[in-house]
Amino acid sequence: MNVFKYLKDSYRQIVFFLLIILITDLVLISSVDLKKSLLDIFYLNILFFFVFLIFLAIDYTKWRNSYKDLKRALDAGENIDSFIPRGNRLEEILIRDIIELKNKEKLEETEKLKKNLEEINDYITKWVHEIKIPLSVCELIADKLEDEGQYDLSKELIQETERMNFLVNQVLHMSRASSYSQDFIVEEVNLSSLVKNVVKNNMNLFISKKIELEMGNLDFNIFTDKKWAYYVIEQIVNNACKYVDVHGKIKIQGEENDESVILTIWDNGMGIPEKDIDRIFDRGFTGENGRKTTKSTGMGLYICKKVADQLNFNIEVSSEVSKYTEFKIIFYKLSDYLKVTKM
């Protein structure tokens, strides 16, 4: 938006002015006595140039003021709606028309994409409910095998069925990633009841690896969405079970301060390498541990972080390789649930 850019854009007007001056001078020179009028013609040219420079400066100032805010917004990647030129010049009218047309095209494209995503989500939801039927049958078969004394086979089948159920539920939750806020119901929830349900539904993981579970005081009430809070806690507990060795240990406890209720989930598993710890909430990131065990999809903690951001609670993690991993879920007492918005 400098003066050289303006002069380059205005070169036709400048050339036109110079031609007018040249023609005027030629006419005056040919029609009067040169000796008597040369100085007058020179003064006249200076006057013309001075007036032209004034008009040029005024036009440049208007031109710069019309577009400088728009240019700054474009360079900064800001929203340009409030900086659209409002003048009646042809180029300003064209800019407004182009922006309006592109906004209309983008809106139509967005609506089409939204409709396609809704169709995919509907299909995934139906598929999840359909796949749960054969999984339930597998659970019945496992129970029958146990009744027949085939305990090892029944145990393995139950473990794999539970893992499939866990992954199927993860697919269902992921399909709702674009509309979490439409699924939120914030209410008062007892933390102890929530954690015990998680442990109960993952009991076979604890039993199969003979994991020692230590539970501290959890008798606190939190304000959150029960279903999604359950999902976050289950993801972290499930990960703890996956990454501890046989006869490992998991500790779950709560504490309260003036601002929040903090749920701590600690395990003595393989730990998270320092180079991975800042990326564990990234979409699709499996890390060194995920590649070792081949049990990670890289989506569980990603969804947890998105849910936490929308429900205004926080997840902190600390770890040391081969020693421990500790997750802290911080449920704030004064969360502004009016800020729960669509992702």
Rank of each mutant, 00 (worst) to 15 (best):
residue 145 L to E: 09
residue 45 N to M: 14
residue 128 V to F: 00
residue 226 K to P: 00
residue 79 N to Q: 11
residue 278 D to K: 13
residue 233 I to A: 01
residue 228 W to F: 09
residue 55 F to W: 10
residue 229 A to N: 03
residue 274 E to W: 04
residue 20 I to W: 12
residue 243 Y to L: 05
residue 32 V to K: 05
residue 92 E to L: 11
residue 200 K to W: 06
residue 12 R to D: 08
residue 42 F to T: 14
residue 286 T to N: 11
residue 54 I to P: 01
residue 242 K to Y: 01
residue 128 V to R: 00
residue 53 L to D: 09
residue 139 E to L: 12
residue 23 I to K: 12
residue 193 S to E: 15
residue 175 S to A: 10
residue 69 D to I: 14
residue 42 F to E: 15
residue 10 S to F: 05
residue 203 M to V: 04
residue 3 V to Q: 09
residue 260 S to C: 10
residue 1 M to N: 04
residue 282 D to P: 05
residue 168 V to N: 14
residue 268 N to V: 04
residue 181 S to M: 06
residue 143 D to F: 13
residue 283 R to E: 14
residue 326 E to G: 03
residue 30 S to F: 15
residue 60 Y to P: 03
residue 296 S to W: 03
residue 72 R to Y: 10
residue 187 E to A: 11
residue 305 K to R: 14
residue 275 K to R: 10
residue 189 V to F: 10
residue 319 S to P: 06
residue 295 K to A: 09
residue 230 Y to T: 12
residue 286 T to F: 07
residue 129 H to E: 12
residue 258 D to A: 04
residue 44 L to W: 02
residue 337 Y to F: 15
residue 116 N to H: 13
residue 288 E to V: 15
residue 181 S to W: 02
residue 154 S to Y: 07
residue 271 G to N: 05
residue 263 L to C: 04
residue 272 I to W: 02
residue 329 I to P: 01
residue 63 W to G: 05
residue 45 N to D: 15
residue 34 L to E: 06
residue 218 L to G: 02
residue 190 N to C: 02
residue 73 A to K: 04
residue 45 N to Q: 14
residue 285 F to R: 05
residue 193 S to D: 11
residue 241 C to G: 09
residue 55 F to H: 11
residue 19 L to H: 04
residue 200 K to G: 13
residue 247 H to L: 11
residue 205 L to C: 03
residue 238 N to H: 15
residue 98 I to K: 02
residue 260 S to A: 14
residue 309 D to F: 10
residue 140 L to M: 09
residue 132 K to Y: 01
residue 142 A to C: 06
residue 183 D to F: 12
residue 259 E to A: 07
residue 17 F to L: 07
residue 246 V to A: 10
residue 106 K to P: 08
residue 24 T to M: 07
residue 49 F to V: 05
residue 176 R to F: 13
residue 174 M to C: 06
residue 17 F to K: 01
residue 98 I to L: 09
residue 54 I to V: 15
residue 75 D to L: 13
residue 215 M to K: 10
residue 70 L to G: 01
residue 270 M to H: 03
residue 244 V to I: 03
residue 135 L to E: 01
residue 30 S to C: 02
residue 301 L to A: 11
